[in-house]
Amino acid sequence: MQSQVVKITARIAMTLVLAPIFVGHAARADTLKIGIIGPLSGGGAAWGQAAVEAGRVLADETNAAGGLQVGPKRYKVEIVSYDDKYNTSEAVSAYNRLVNQDGVKYVMILTGAATAALKQNVEDDKVLALTGSYTGNTLDKNSHYMFRFYSDPDQYVGPFVDWVKKNQPGRKVVTINPNDETGWHVADVSSRTLTSSGFQVVDKELFERSQKDFQPMLTKVIAMKPDIIDLGSTPPAVAGLIVRQARELGYDKLFTKSGGSGPRDIVAAAGAKAAEGTINVLYADPSNPGYQRLAAAYKKAKGQDGNEIMVPYYDGLNVLLHAIALSGQIDDTSKVAAAFSRALPMKSVQGDQIRLGGMQYYGTNTQLITVNYIGVIRNGAPVAIGKLQ
């Protein structure tokens, strides 16, 4: 298992509106470990690398402040990340190592498959988890230690479909998603929403995450003459591969991406010409100064552009650190979980409002409600053209 340890000192960014929770310089700080489990290699690497880098950026901004103030003590935060290769068994191994060997009580789990596999472990172990899962059953009335750190399709697909209906011609849609719990949930939400909005969903395709040749599937899809192919929760690099192969087969209509955004990775795999005009749900506005600050730090560290999903990773970690500070506890995760309601609402690094919710959807208020954007790929780059709230 590939591992990466990034030691960081964390504080809350000065752009946020909460009271200061960090103290000045001193000689020594205790350590608070936060684990990250996600794909640091393979098709989902853009998401995993963004998570690790978001933690590093947060630390770089706060190293001089001296640490996170929790009660009478202050803490240096150590981010411990493991590559699960988008594989459930690897994710379980990473979790066990984090909890049993590294002594981690706080963990970020990036994918739906990993979250589904670890959901009960999190509750049993009282490990406070932040998840990026799109899986429908991630949160329920028994979720006390699991928090989703951004809005999921239940919150934003409706406004996304409404925007497409108002701004794009054509009503015949094919959806394409991975053949796992994440893909099933996104396909279900998307198809129900599209149908209720007057679209005709002529096919719902599922593929295995290891798949590289999509021409047989796309030949069938294109024969149905869809006006729109929605790539749903398909990983960005794979989405780009699908776009390129579909264009090669003669498909010249619209692509949409209603989940798991990553337009730059789509362009890298498809080419700018093939990807032109693709409509995306974006986690960030590329023109926003807050995002640009994170993006510049990522590019300096990695030598390439990062995925805009850095924004909810960064914000999610900020919310967690605020909750820990407000709880006055570092070891009692039940008190930290209760403090989320005191930490929120707060402002995102982009200035948008983050709220706590989820009761109406899952029977529990462990969902961070965030603002997403409508984006379009123009000349090889994403451009935000609206908000989804």
Rank of each mutant, 00 (worst) to 15 (best):
F22N: 13
H25M: 04
A26H: 13
A27Y: 10
R28C: 06
R28P: 01
R28Q: 13
A29Q: 12
D30V: 01
D30R: 11
T31W: 00
L32F: 10
L32K: 12
K33Y: 03
K33G: 00
K33A: 14
I34V: 15
G35N: 05
I36E: 03
I37N: 02
I37L: 05
I37Y: 02
G38P: 02
P39H: 01
P39Q: 00
S41T: 15
G42F: 01
G43V: 15
G43S: 11
A46E: 08
W47N: 07
W47G: 02
G48A: 01
G48R: 01
G48W: 04
G48C: 07
A50Y: 04
A50M: 02
A50P: 01
A50W: 05
V52P: 03
V52M: 01
E53Y: 04
E53C: 05
A54M: 01
A54F: 01
A54K: 06
A54P: 03
G55T: 02
G55C: 09
R56Q: 14
L58H: 07
L58C: 09
L58W: 11
L58T: 13
T62I: 04
N63K: 14
G66S: 09
G66Y: 12
Q69T: 15
V70I: 14
V70D: 10
G71T: 12
G71V: 10
G71F: 04
P72Y: 00
K73P: 00
K76M: 09
V77P: 14
V77M: 09
V77Y: 07
E78S: 15
I79H: 01
V80D: 06
S81K: 10
S81L: 05
Y82T: 06
Y82M: 10
D83N: 15
K85R: 14
N87Q: 09
N87H: 10
T88W: 02
T88C: 00
T88P: 05
S89A: 15
S89H: 08
S89K: 13
E90T: 11
E90S: 13
A91Y: 04
A91T: 13
V92W: 07
V92R: 10
A94H: 09
A94I: 11
A94P: 12
Y95A: 07
R97S: 11
L98C: 07
V99S: 05
V99R: 11
N100P: 08
N100W: 00
Q101V: 14
Q101S: 13
D102I: 06
G103R: 07
V104M: 06
V104Q: 06
V104L: 03
K105N: 14
K105P: 04
K105S: 14
Y106C: 05
V107G: 03
V107W: 00
V107I: 15
M108T: 15
I109L: 05
I109H: 02
I109Q: 00
I109R: 00
T111A: 03
G112C: 03
A113P: 08
